[in-house]
Structure formats: C-alpha cells, structure tokens
C-alpha cells in the first residue's frame, strides 16, 4: 500500500538555507532514508545526504526527523500518520556542509584528545589475562556506532557553542569511562575527565541515553559512575583519608 507523504527537507549550504516542501511516494515497509533517496531519484538530484549501511550499524545517516535526532535508516515511515508532515533537518549541533550532511570533525578532534589505552609497563602484549566480569561494563560502551547523536542532542554544546572547547560530549566521556573501568588501564583519567573533558558540565539530563540507537545506558552506566569516581578523587575527604591510611595507590581498585 502506498501513499503520498508531505516532507519538509532542509536545503542549503554552510548553515544558510530553508525548509523545502516535497510530496513524495511512500511504500509499505520503507524508512525515512528510503524517502530521501526517492527524493534524490525523482525531484532533487543534488540533495546531499550521508549514508552507508542502511542497517543501523554505521552511524552515517544521523539527522533530525520532526525535531528528534534519529537514524534515517532506522526510522520507519509506519511510525508517522499518512497526513503528517515530516520535517527532516541536519544535526543541529554541527556545521552544515550541504543539506543534511554535517561536518562532524569536532568529534574526531575530541577523540584524539582522549589518551589511548595505557597498560602497565610490566605487562607485555599477549600477557593480558582478565575475566569476563571485569570487562563486561566496558563492552557495553563498545557497541557505540559513532553516530554522534548523543553529542548532537547534548544541550551543553547544542545550545552553547562556546562550550565546545571545554566539553568532549557524552560520546567521549563514555570512552574515558570505558578506559577508566578497564582492569589493565593505568592512566589517570579522573582528573582528565573533570579538567580537560568537562565532565562537570554534564547535568545528567539523560538526552544522550534517550537518543542512543544502540540503547547504551550512557548516563547511568558511564557518566554517573565516572562522576562518582571523580568524587572519590576530588571531593570525598573520607576516601582521600582511607587512601592515605591504607596507602592504596590506585584508589584500591
């Protein structure tokens, strides 16, 4: 069963642009990305959209559909009513290159600023031995497909461009948590999370968790545990005293 759907799609380069109206055919089982492709094929051959796997695993087709950050390939048309006008815009936090394609290099810059996995110097590659329970928490974060919708929706940078310098966003704070929880990582990540990556900006309003297409519990399992670790390190006098008395070098972990 097919019908004609009304679409408003952001068209323009470098931020300047406007929402253009389209009426386009929709068939059963299609997703929003299918409709964008149909627009390219039939009405707007120069419409720019970034996409790749069409299976929700590459994180390329992040866009905002009716104002919500979504993957175009995972948003079924059947979730909208036939008389609804569907608005499609690029991710709002990042600069626009063209139409729905944004420049996400902010994220790559922040990724480079996170110190890489740092094992103890006494352990050589091939000598790592760890149990599943010790790495299970970190493995949840490895599901991330880097769609950057969590960073896009985070109001710290979405509504305050000036915070981009000091805030790495939920994606990379989660990466820091992943490494900090790793049994073989010895780098000091707690001070870095607070001072260099802006963990203190996070007010745990959980939008990152709400939009994650991989359903990673970013706030509950990464950001809040990381905040608690920072409290251990910087704000809890009892933990500080315990570490001094019992001479626990790595917070007794």
């Amino acid at each position: 069963m097919s019908y004609k759907a009304k679409f408003k799609v952001w068209r323009g380069e470098g931020g300047e642009g406007k929402l253009e109206d389209f009426t386009v055919e929709v068939n059963e089982g299609e997703v929003v990305l299918d409709i964008i492709h149909r627009l390219q094929a039939t009405q707007a051959p120069d419409l720019a959209v970034r996409w790749n796997c069409k299976a929700g695993k590459c994180g390329s087709c992040s866009m905002e559909i009716n104002g919500k950050p979504r993957l175009g390939c995972m948003t079924r048309m059947s979730t909208f009513s036939e008389d609804e006008t569907i608005t499609v815009t690029p991710m709002r936090t990042f600069p626009v290159i063209k139409d729905l394609v944004t420049d996400v290099s902010y994220n790559y810059q922040k990724a480079r600023e996170v110190q890489s996995f740092t094992p103890p110097s006494s352990v050589r590659p091939g000598e790592y031995r760890m149990k599943q329970v010790d790495v299970e928490r970190s493995q949840e974060f490895r599901k991330c497909i880097e769609c950057f919708m969590c960073n896009n929706v985070c109001h710290v940078i979405r509504d305050h461009e000036e915070n981009k310098t000091n805030f790495s966003g939920p994606r990379f704070l989660m990466r820091i948590a992943e490494l900090d929880m790793h049994p073989y990582d010895v780098a000091d990540r707690q001070d870095a999370a607070q001072e260099e990556h802006g963990l203190g900006y996070c007010n745990i309003t959980k939008c990152c968790t709400e939009v994650c297409p991989e359903h990673i519990k970013i706030t509950d399992n990464a950001l809040i545990p990381m905040k608690e670790r920072v409290v251990d390190r910087r704000y809890d006098p009892l933990v500080w005293l315990g570490n001094k008395i019992f001479r626990r070098g790595d917070n007794g972990k």
């Binding site: 905002e64 104002g67 919500k68 950050p69 709002r92 929706v153 109001h155 710290v156 979405r158 509504d159 305050h160 915070n163 802006g198 203190g200 900006y201 996070c202 007010n203 309003t205 939008c207 709400e210 939009v211 905040k227 608690e228 920072v230 409290v231 910087r234 704000y235 809890d236």
Partner: peptide
C-alpha cells in the same frame, strides 16, 4: 528548563553545569 526536553532549546544564555558553587555541592550526594 536546562533543557526542558531533549532537542528543545533552553532559554539560558550561558551554561556552566555542575562545575561551580552552588551546583558543585551536588557531589556531597553520597
């Protein structure tokens, strides 16, 4: 209203989070 809902713009011109007094006191939760 910081933010009122996801992907809804907050009304404040500046945002510093829980890095300064008084909100840094949230760290006494334990």
């Amino acid at each position: 209203l910081s933010p009122p809902a996801c992907a809804v713009q907050e009304p404040h011109g500046k945002y510093t989070g829980e890095r300064r007094f008084p909100l840094i006191m949230q760290n006494v939760h334990r």
